[in-house]
């Protein structure tokens, strides 16, 4: 299961390129691209690093669709 996220929007707000964000997080640009496009869910430590960098909670950045579906039921 892959979760949606708003990393692209947060990155755009700061005017960062994918490479710049990758440098901040200590990962490759390919990783940032894969996470933004929903091809890859980051590990918990990387998700926390992303949340810390953008000064938001993990839930604000990553949208857990399973939780939304359960709530709808």
């Amino acid at each position: 299961m892959l979760v949606k996220n708003i990393i692209r929007a947060l990155r755009a707000e700061r005017g960062w390129s994918q490479a710049a964000l990758a440098d901040h997080l200590g990962v490759s640009r390919q990783s940032v691209n894969a996470i933004e496009t929903g091809k890859y869910d980051p590990s918990l430590p990387l998700a926390f690093a992303i949340a810390r960098l953008f000064e938001k909670s993990i839930e604000e950045i990553f949208d857990d669709e399973t939780e939304a579906q359960l709530a709808a039921q």
């Binding site: 200590g26 990962v27 990783s31 996470i35 980051p42």
Partner: peptide, 8 residues
């Protein structure tokens, strides 16, 4: 040597 996504 690479990061978690590339390693995967």
């Amino acid at each position: 040597e690479t990061d978690e996504y590339t390693r995967m």
